[in-house]
């Protein structure tokens, strides 16, 4: 007699850039797919992102960054999630991330990196497949 569990997604923007076009387009598409999307606003520190993920008990953390600071900020976010026993949360990323960085980021536990031009449907499917 349990209500079907809603998938909760945190869309977070670490880094100092203000490019939220992608993050917002994705947030809207995820909402339209029936997810609950929590958006943090711009320029969030790793600490703010990890703590929000915890308090909101999200299934997915989507990180959008275009500033180029991902190699510094993502490891910190992953570490802070781990410290909060949130290592099982699905972390995905998007924005401007050079392909050279994909492998080290995936080693950190980031499950997928969606580059520019990714159809939003692909992100929805990926989340559905990896959260059940």
């Amino acid at each position: 007699m349990t209500e079907t569990r809603k998938i909760r997604v945190l869309i977070a923007k670490p880094g100092l850039d203000g490019h939220d076009r992608g993050a917002k387009v994705v947030a809207r598409a995820l909402r339209d797919a029936g997810f609950e999307v929590i958006y943090t606003g711009l320029r969030q520190t790793p600490e703010q992102i990890a703590e929000t993920a915890l308090q909101e008990d999200v299934d997915v953390v989507g990180l959008s960054i275009l500033s180029g600071a991902h190699m510094r900020l993502f490891p910190e976010i992953m570490q802070l999630l781990k410290e909060r026993e949130m290592a099982d949360v699905l972390v995905i990323a998007g924005g401007i991330i050079p392909e050279d960085d994909f492998e080290p980021l995936k080693k950190l536990g980031i499950k997928e990196i969606f580059g520019p031009g990714t159809p939003t449907g692909e992100i929805v499917d990926f989340i559905r497949k990896h959260t059940k």
Partner: peptide, 14 residues
């Protein structure tokens, strides 16, 4: 329609 939601209130308090 979809049951989805965009929850943005935190932006103010984050």
């Amino acid at each position: 329609f979809t049951g989805g939601a965009l929850l943005g209130d935190r932006i103010r308090m984050n």
